[in-house]
């Protein structure tokens, strides 16, 4: 596989990483995402990593970079589906990923994206209105 497919769902872009990523593929994903974001004028990006069985510092940095780039381009990024073993390993490794928003699964991720995008829309009322 040469590219990781990017799907547009409503106002968001959805990326589901399904393969054991080699480094070139990861680099290409960053480029593809920025191109797609500008082309589709999407408001947010959801990255599903539930199929990834490891996240090392390289992939971690890539995810962090995507979040930063999207934020510069005015979009929100949410990473969903990180496996427990992967999360424990990342913490032990010392990666913080502090600029990355996370959610448990795609459903909750979309919900969080909506909240984030709306709270940017209504400037000035940016409270944690985390409604159920």
């Amino acid at each position: 596989m040469d590219h990781i497919p990017i799907i547009k769902v409503g106002e968001f872009l959805l990326v589901s990483i399904q393969v054991d990523m080699h480094d070139r593929l990861a680099m290409r994903l960053q480029d593809d995402l920025t191109t797609q974001l500008i082309k589709t004028r999407a408001q947010g990006v959801l990255i599903d990593i539930s199929s990834l069985d490891i996240v090392d510092s390289f992939i971690g940095r890539m995810i962090g970079n995507i979040a930063s780039m999207m934020s510069i381009l005015g979009a929100e990024t949410v990473v969903v589906g990180m496996r427990p073993a992967v999360a424990i390993t990342i913490v032990e490794l010392g990666l913080s990923l502090s600029n990355v928003r996370t959610a448990l699964n795609v459903d909750k991720g979309i919900g969080l994206l909506r909240v984030l995008v709306n709270s940017i829309g209504n400037e000035g009322s940016r409270h944690d209105n985390y409604q159920k």
Binding site: V79, M82, R83, P84, A87, V91, S96, L104, G109
Partner: peptide, 12 residues
């Protein structure tokens, strides 16, 4: 502390 961080990474 690590558990708290790991849970946060998972979105909880």
């Amino acid at each position: 502390l690590k558990t708290v961080s790991a849970a946060k990474l998972m979105g909880a």
